[in-house]
Every structure is written in C-alpha cells, then in structure tokens.
C-alpha cells in the first residue's frame, strides 16, 4: 500500500511541488490561456513566449500561475523545465510522450532521455482520478503554444 502511494508521490514530485520552477506570470508573451479542471476546480493561467532559434521556432519562456494539488503543481514545474529553450516541434514531441505515459494505465515504460524528471509521473497513470491533475498544465501549454503559432502566422 505504501509502495503504491510512494510510486505516486515520488520525491521528485514533492520537490517540484515545494519549490516550483519558473512559477509566476512573465512578459513578454504571445498567448495566455486559462484552463480549469471542472471536477475539482484546479486552475492554471499559462503564458507562452516564442522566438526564433537555430532549430526553428523556439519556446523562449513558459510562465504560469496555478492553484491545485501537488501533482498538478509539480507537473507544471516539470513541464517548464522540459520545454523552455526547445524548438516547438521537439517540445510537442515531449508533450506527446508525456500524454502517452499518462494514458498508458501504468503499462507504458517512460523514456528518461525524453521526459527527464517527468518519468516520476509514471505512477500517476495508475490513479485514474489523478491523471487530469497531471495533464492540466500540459493541455494549457499546448493550447497556448498553438494559439501563439497562429498569431505568428497571421
């Protein structure tokens, strides 16, 4: 029983929860979104700033303000670590990898090369009620990034 709980609340997750990275809303940004988890009320406001980099359009900054549980907060923190500084295409692939892990019912082996601290969330996939918590900021990030890209294209 404790092992199950410990697989959910990995030390890495609790660390990110206590000391979230890149937290707070910053300028500049091209898109801001507000996502809520309607069943529990967790909320995130998230901004994306894109720029030109050697690998194409790059995620220059992701800033956010979030209210919610340890899983949703830690997930936002890990997300920013993983995508800031990456070309958007690479970041989207990381997003897809994380989504696959979360939807994998605990059967997917996470790739530490791609997900780094994100592998700590593997245990969440076994708690169906908590998957939405882990995905909240990732969904918000994808939404904001897509919006920012559309803005740019116009």
């Amino acid at each position: 029983m404790t092992t199950d709980l410990d697989s959910l609340y990995q030390e890495i997750i609790l660390d990110h929860y206590k000391n979230p990275h890149h937290k707070g809303l910053r300028e500049p940004f091209e898109a801001e979104v507000h996502h809520v988890n309607p069943t529990c009320g967790d909320e995130v406001t998230l901004r994306v700033h894109l720029g030109d980099g050697p690998g194409g359009t790059t995620v220059e900054d992701v800033s956010y303000d979030a209210l919610g549980c340890s899983i949703s907060q830690a997930s936002a923190s890990v997300l920013t670590d993983l995508v800031i500084g990456k070309p958007v295409d690479d970041a989207m692939r990381i997003h897809d990898e994380f989504l696959t892990l979360m939807q994998g019912k605990g059967q997917v082996e996470p790739d530490e090369e791609v997900l780094e601290d994100g592998v700590a969330f593997a245990g969440v996939a076994r708690f169906p009620a908590r998957i939405k918590c882990a995905l909240l900021s990732w969904m918000a990030w994808k939404d904001a990034t897509t919006t920012a890209q559309l803005e740019e294209a116009q």
Binding site: M1, D4, L5, L8, Y9, C40, D42, G68, C69, S70, I71, S72, F127, A129, R130, C133
Partner: peptide, 18 residues
Amino acid sequence: HPHDLATVLDTRGIAVRA
C-alpha cells in the same frame, strides 16, 4: 491539497470527496 488528502485516504480504504 484536498486531492492529495483524498488519494492518501483512499489507499487506506477511506472514501471522501475532494
């Protein structure tokens, strides 16, 4: 957070709402 509370309680068979 209430979610975390509810999850820990749930692993002990205790059902509450969060």
